[in-house]
Design a protein around this nucleic acid. Sequence first.
DNA 1: GTCTATAACCGGATAGAC
DNA 2: GTCTATCCGGTTATAGAC
Lengths: 229, 229
Amino acid sequence: MNPRKNSGGTTGAPARRQGAARRATASGSASERRDHLVQLAAELFARKGFQATTVREIAVEAGILSGSLYHHFDSKESIVDEVLTTFLDDLVGRYRAVLARGGEPREVLAEMVRTGFAALKPHRAAVTVMQNDWNYLRSLPGDRFGYLVKAEEEVERMWIEQIKRGQATGGIRPDVDPKLTYRMIRDTIWVAVRWFRPDGRLDTAAIAEHYIMILFDGLATGERSSHPG
Amino acid sequence: MNPRKNSGGTTGAPARRQGAARRATASGSASERRDHLVQLAAELFARKGFQATTVREIAVEAGILSGSLYHHFDSKESIVDEVLTTFLDDLVGRYRAVLARGGEPREVLAEMVRTGFAALKPHRAAVTVMQNDWNYLRSLPGDRFGYLVKAEEEVERMWIEQIKRGQATGGIRPDVDPKLTYRMIRDTIWVAVRWFRPDGRLDTAAIAEHYIMILFDGLATGERSSHPG
DNA sequence: GTCTATAACCGGATAGAC
DNA sequence: GTCTATCCGGTTATAGAC
């Protein structure tokens, strides 16, 4: 069996690339070819949805026939698996780096917001797939995509810890619910992939600063607690 | 042809129920039956996604066979069409009512936020379908779902007008981008359907007030412009 | 590494009996 | 209004030639 094939099953993200001691072959390595195929598939999954994208379409996009795809991948699922894992590994790594740098909770949170928005551009397709097809992929028999939940839980702990730390040390107002606040921040970042355009009026950095401004200082002018309700 | 069937095509939402002069039949009217089927289908669409839900599953849920469904509906698409239209008609009507009451822009915006969150409970399935399958449905040939865009555009104009009015009259800070701000508010509301549970710790009213607090006053303690960055 | 050919299956939709 | 029976096309995946 081709060692690069993802046999999936019960193994989570950590076990995935045991064959990943990829020799750097002369040029146009097999792993580059594979990554290219994954990228093509990701774009199609993002545009049409995972289920609505056929392996034939992926193959046509790559200039081969559908049967040939199975030389590279076990199944259609293993392709989307690789799309999502690549994104999550990168994101979690970046969050860890932000936390490792330390600092005031409010600064750390702002930096995490910037990290999230910054991921929209390089991982646009993967984020879209995660947004649209997360429910479906999780519902598949077996826990092939259980690592999605594991990664989400780790990220949630990171955010909530900073929010609570900010409340304890005084930078964050104590009367907000940490978990609810985390969810709203998270959702606001990732759902932006629906309207964000790389060539649009605002880049992800500008969007991040705009959101950080509203998130910390609010929309209202004048004194606090002057909002209606 | 059965007048209750939605032949879809180019007609938008307003033209839909020309046959809707439903006689109130004795009991368990045909329209009630139909609405029940739509509701069952909506739950399945929300849980598994539109494409992953088969007409056979919908039929089984209703205790009939798949062929029998076609006595009530033209197609699977016409079912999801009805799910979304019912929701959008209700939502747009409620927004219009809020605007008709008038008031300070900040009060109006807060009331619109409350209106959105309040819709999560009665329209949970429809909102989920809109979130997950909007892209796919829009991509279908023909503009069968063009009314989705029309309704979204009307709602966008409503929000942005209030934000701009607030900036002009002084209640909303002038240095935020109205369109960007609208998108973030909109997304924060609707994406909450992913984690909102009707029997959970917080009801939609509490979630709305929590969000309104952060949205207008911000997360930070102390003076303005003290945020990092 | 790709192609040809095809297996095995499942999807939406229809026609007509009852 | 529902059932029976079925059509027809599309889907993933496989086997073996080149």
